[in-house]
Nucleic acid binder design. Structure first.
Lengths: 341, 341
DNA sequence: TTGAAAGCGCTAACAG
DNA sequence: CTGTTAGCGCTTTCAA
């Protein structure tokens, strides 16, 4: 089923059908009608790949995501898809399970599809990845770095949509200090490639040091994150029994620690303040509610889609969008506080 | 950067380069080396779309998912991606937010890419969707229905990977009855298009009726599912105060209900047994642990990928894979029971 | 307003 | 083992 079949049935040539599909106003009304009838009758679906090959224009956007199973990224993807809906662009998703080697491979594979834009997560990649991205940019393909936003500003062609994770780490320390705490600690992710978690950790420790405090930094175990949070709290209480306020690289760790603390009879937040990151759904349901920083999960996807459309359709767009995290104070850091959302 | 450039640099013609890429053993070792050098030097990436157009073979798999944001589907996608990794096939993902109208549109859009296989969620679609899928099958494109498995068996070309949701509903009723309960109820999803939840509800009510019981059936509100679970329990206690065991369409509802029950001083499972579906991570962490049915989230993705590879590479494959749910008994239905996983 | 010719980058089939 | 010819389904440019 090709243009040819439609053309034959409508009594025109292929080019007229093609033109009707792309610029219907340039075809006589009466011809248009016959063509449309033929299309409907035969259930014609244009071959996108042939069209792209001939025109040199791609309608494909490729996104490289560390782990789609993580709900935090799943919502961003959902936002991306919704934002792209109706634009004519399709999304090709690659998930590399936090393996940077696989990221390069996936990038290589996807480049063969000649995507109109590339979306990558964060700023940290293997040199080979950077090299390929540079080439793509040089070739006119915009590259979006999402879930991150940091100075120094990247060169032209690159777009950042996200927030500064060091700054978020600092926000976390400042909130705990504002609650009156001086004995702080941070539990970082044990996944080496979770660079953004490490930046939050650094931001936290740095802010504490600025305030004259020394905040110990632990690494959570791999495996089930809630279990890891439990274990981390256990370890922390052995090694640093004086600590009264702990921030975690994510809410799952924090939740595990909260449950662990309670099961040992500690009162939260009186004996121990607990602060998470991510605003996962359950933090609002448990008692006490989990204080946390809420990243703009869906907004990152939607904004990226929006900038993408501007860029691809009109050639111009912002190169930069800072979407800050919101501090959500619940009971785990501030006694007698209503959920402030 | 095309085959031509590589060929020129290696002192051969395009076809030799093309052949080297696809059947390296059919090229002289010495030639192969020169070609490879040229490829490396110029950083050549073959144009997938041109190749597919010329060969008529597609290396694209399209998947239609109700909602990627739902972690339950996110893990299936992760499984799919992992299972497809290294096969040379790429995944194109479409999420239609449980809108069947959008599902048809997305299907239409993706058909233009001439995918090698289609993956759809469940068996229930608009007639237009069914029609298009039929056409695809008639054309030799296999269609996978995932997250569902039911008789009567579909015609050739279709593959089911999942489980029978009515059966799961029955399993839920049977577990509660085995715990000694006679006053049962089911809280179904309020999303009209969540057909699989409705099937679980029907299976539940049917199994209860077989046992001579009348189990009331409520619909949860839309919006935040944990809140909806809370509200549903409230409503249930007003309308059917005698009920002592409730099953829910998913764990989030169940969790909300569990928390609601506890906040009203009800003892779980003594005063009220609570059973969920999905085995979301938190059910194991809270006290009492949430009893639930665990669907093979990741396995559905992996198995689908496996069957897909068999089908696309060797032409033959099972047409059917039943992956049952596991009953996970924790404290919310059985007092003094260890988590049995 | 419509059509003819040429070609996008690659591969199939056959020939050498 | 390598090359030639033809063409995948569509779009571009130009001419009618």
């Amino acid at each position: 089923m090709t243009l040819h079949d439609i053309a034959a049935r409508a009594g025109v040539t292929r080019i007229t059908v093609s033109r009707y599909l792309r610029e219907p106003e340039r075809v006589a009304a009466e011809t248009a009608q016959r063509v449309q009838q033929a299309i409907d009758a035969l259930g014609y679906v244009p071959n996108v790949q042939a069209g792209q090959l001939a025109s040199g224009h791609s309608r494909l956007v490729a996104a490289l995501i560390p782990n789609i199973g993580h709900s935090i990224f799943a919502e961003t993807i959902q936002g991306l898809i919704e934002g792209l809906d109706g634009s004519g662009y399709e999304l090709m998703l690659m998930s590399y399970a936090y393996s940077l080697e696989r990221e390069v491979e996936q990038l290589r594979a996807v480049l063969g599809w000649h995507p109109a834009a590339l979306i990558v997560t964060g700023r940290q990649h293997l040199p080979a990845t950077h090299h390929l991205l540079q080439q793509a940019v040089a070739h006119g393909t915009p590259v979006f770095q999402i879930w991150d936003h940091a100075r120094p500003k990247h060169p032209a062609g690159w777009v950042q949509v996200g927030f500064d994770h060091r700054e978020v780490g600092a926000q976390m320390a400042e909130h705990l200090m504002a609650c009156g705490h001086r004995a702080l600690a941070f539990v970082d992710s044990g996944v080496v490639e979770d660079f953004r978690a490490h930046e939050r950790a650094q931001g936290f420790v740095h802010a504490a040091r600025q305030a004259g405090l020394v905040a110990p930094l632990l690494n959570a175990n791999l495996g089930d994150p809630t279990e890891a949070g439990r274990a981390a709290l256990h370890e922390l209480r052995q090694a640093h029994p004086h600590v009264r306020a702990v921030a975690f690289a994510n809410d799952q760790f924090a939740l595990g620690a909260l449950l662990e603390a309670q099961s040992h009879g500690l009162e939260v937040p009186k004996d121990l303040a607990v602060l998470g990151f991510g605003d996962f759904p359950l933090g609002a349901q448990i008692a006490p509610g989990l204080s946390t920083l809420r990243p703009p999960r869906v907004e990152i996807g939607r904004t990226t889609a929006e900038i993408l459309r501007q860029r691809l359709l009109h050639g111009q767009s912002p190169t930069d969008c800072h979407l800050p995290c919101a501090l959500v104070v619940r009971g785990s850091t501030a006694a007698n506080t209503q959920a402030k959302v």
